[in-house]
């Protein structure tokens, strides 16, 4: 790990004044003067320890006052401060009651130790876990290199990679919490260098590699996430989340799904189905949603929706197993709504 200076920011304005780049920009085109944000610091420290970044200054935003609160208004919904830890969300009673899918996603993220340290903003802003991207020995597209190592049909270790929208970088986004937030139609509040607030839907927060290979989200040089907003669910809303992993204790997602539906008896009035670890960004399956909207939820319609959700899948050489896996967890999650 290189030596760096530490700037202890006291306010959002103070933090924005003292940062000059993002971790992603530094990975794509390294400078000698980089100063970027750190909150919980897990992902930043990971990159530092791997020798992938060598910033001049880390701007610590972890202890900026007022960014660590969860507020819940019955009609408005929930506002989660950027520095709220995953553990705080996991154990908050209003989360479990109003947003079960979010609670389940958070409770299955990382380890208890990491949930005590990681912040919600850091979880959304973390970079992909693609092992080629995380390796100093592999200059891939995401790091301004000239190839994708994972895509290679023989040598590419692409078991965990994308089966949808994988025409460019084939990595998947690392946040499984984002899957739940996408299904819940959450938005991200960002403060820019001009101190203007932007409110961006989770869907627009993530950037596909086809749009811009150098980044996974829209955060620019002087952008700081200040809060996450989760709108109040309409009456009779049910939600569920399933994360499929390789081992029971803890792991990165192989496939995860969040479903949020407004039900009238067994009829689905409105529904969102979000998939994680399927594509380079968390995605909604609008096609599957269309099949269920206004219809009865039963074995037949649910199976049809799951099949539809995977119609767009184009697996790589070693991740074809994800298709039946997704179908299975989509069916299981939807069955929980009946």
């Amino acid at each position: 790990m290189n030596r760096f200076s530490w700037y202890e920011a006291k306010s959002v304005e103070d933090a924005l004044k003292n940062a000059n780049t993002t971790l992603s920009e530094e990975l794509y085109s390294p400078s000698n003067e980089a100063a970027f944000f750190k909150s919980g610091g897990i992902d930043v420290l990971d990159f530092l320890k791997e020798g992938l970044i060598s910033p001049k200054t880390i701007v610590n935003v972890r202890d900026i006052p007022g960014m660590d609160k969860i507020e819940h208004e019955h009609n408005e919904g929930m506002t989660i401060g950027a520095n709220v830890t995953l553990a705080e969300i996991e154990h908050h009673p209003d989360v479990a009651i109003n947003f079960p899918a979010l609670q389940m996603a958070v409770a299955h993220a990382a380890t208890p130790q990491l949930r005590n340290m990681s912040t919600i903003a850091g979880n959304l802003a973390q970079r992909t876990r693609c092992w080629y991207f995380r390796s100093v020995d592999h200059q891939c597209f995401r790091k301004n290199g000239d190839r994708c190592f994972a895509r290679h049909s023989e040598t590419g270790q692409n078991e965990g990679h994308a089966i949808i929208n994988n025409g460019s970088c084939v990595s998947v986004h690392a946040s499984s919490i984002a899957t739940a937030l996408l299904a819940l139609k959450a938005s991200v509040v960002i403060q820019g260098g001009d101190m203007k607030k932007k409110v961006v839907s989770i869907e627009d927060f993530f950037v596909s590699p086809m749009q811009d290979i150098s980044r996974e989200n829209i955060l620019g040089k002087k952008d700081l996430i200040t809060e996450i907003k989760v709108p109040a669910p309409s009456a009779n809303t049910k939600s569920f989340y399933i994360k499929q992993v390789a081992r029971e204790s803890y792991d990165w997602s192989l496939a995860d799904v969040a479903v949020v539906a407004e039900m009238k008896g067994n009829t689905c009035v409105d529904i969102t189905i979000a998939l994680g670890a399927a594509a380079p960004t968390p995605i909604r399956s609008y096609e599957a949603e269309k099949i269920l909207k206004g219809e009865q939820l039963n074995d037949m319609s649910i199976t049809k929706a799951a099949e539809k959700a995977m119609e767009v899948a184009r697996p790589l050489s070693k991740n074809g197993y994800k298709i039946p896996l997704f179908k299975s967890i989509i069916v299981r999650a939807l069955s929980e709504l009946i």
């Binding site: 200076s5 700037y7 202890e8 306010s11 103070d14 200054t57």
Partner: peptide
């Protein structure tokens, strides 16, 4: 005691 603006340390 916390100053109004932040403080730099290191390297």
């Amino acid at each position: 005691s916390q100053p109004a603006t932040g403080k730099a340390f290191g390297p």
